[in-house]
Amino acid sequence: MLVIAEAALECVPEEISSHPAVSNRAKKLGYKAQETLLDRSYHHAAMKRLLESWKRGRPDIVHFALMEALSTPLFIQGYLDVYVHTFDNKIISMAGGLRIPKSYFRFEGLMQDLFRNGAVKSDDGSPLMEMEKGTLAELIGEAKPDRVVGLSSAGVQSNAEQVVRKNSLDRKCMFVIGGFPKGHFGDNTKALFNCTYSIENIGLEAHVVIARILYECEKMKRSS
């Protein structure tokens, strides 16, 4: 399992919905302000008022991370479950075989539909993505992994191969990767991990960590 946690993916919160930077962008998109994604590229001036604003308003990070994860043989062949846990405690689950748009603007529209309707469905009505309120702790309680492994530059120094082999062999493992631009996991999140590792001696972007971890998972699966 892969979880992109505390992800900087949310709709514009009510407290800044009337700010000109927000209302002008919403008008251009043809949505109500609180139906648009919070995005630092457009809402930087308004976001100064928000709690932990440095961790928020980067849906592009989630887009890159999902493109990486959902394009792997591991996911395509049905061996990987992918979830997004958002900053404001929503859980997004992905249907098997899902492919998301490579265009960010199409991804943005898809996410706005998801937040508005709670689901995105195929032409035949089957769910492609579903969203519900929930914490990371609740997701872990439902998924029941044997191990919950955090990946963070603040973790114990290791490498992707060692992390996967130590924690995934004959175990149902959940890898948790931050979906935010700055800072570290919150204390409530860190308390859920059995262990936390850094796989490089420099900070890596989420999609790079995902690529390295999932590649090692694929190698281990082929050799088992």
Rank of each mutant, 00 (worst) to 15 (best):
D81Q: 12
D113P: 01
I16M: 05
M131S: 00
M129A: 03
N117Q: 08
L74Q: 14
N194M: 09
M111E: 03
F105C: 09
V208L: 03
L204E: 01
E52N: 13
N89P: 01
R40T: 08
S158D: 15
S41Y: 12
F175T: 10
D146R: 03
V84Q: 02
I213E: 02
R165F: 13
C11V: 13
G118M: 01
E52P: 09
L37G: 12
F75M: 09
Q157C: 11
G109Y: 08
S153Y: 15
E216Y: 03
P20I: 04
H207K: 07
K121Y: 08
E10H: 03
E132T: 04
D88I: 12
K121A: 07
S23N: 01
K27E: 09
E132S: 09
G97R: 12
A95G: 14
V148I: 08
K102L: 15
E216Q: 08
F75K: 03
H63R: 00
G118T: 02
K55P: 11
R147H: 12
D39A: 02
I92M: 03
L51E: 07
R106N: 13
E200S: 15
L50M: 07
K144L: 07
R49P: 10
S126R: 13
Y197W: 06
G97Y: 12
I140R: 08
A160L: 04
K219V: 11
Q162L: 05
C173Y: 10
E14D: 08
K133T: 08
F115I: 03
L80M: 10
V176K: 02
T135K: 02
F185S: 04
D113S: 14
V176H: 10
A26D: 05
A7Y: 00
L80V: 03
N167K: 14
P145N: 00
V176G: 07
V163G: 10
K102W: 13
V176C: 00
S23A: 06
P101K: 06
L70E: 11
E200W: 13
V22A: 06
I91V: 14
V176I: 01
V209M: 01
E161N: 13
V208Y: 09
N188C: 04
S126Q: 11
E35F: 02
H19P: 00
P59F: 04
K32V: 11
I4E: 10
Q112I: 02
V3P: 03
P20R: 00
A46T: 01
M111V: 02
S126W: 10
K172T: 09
M131W: 10
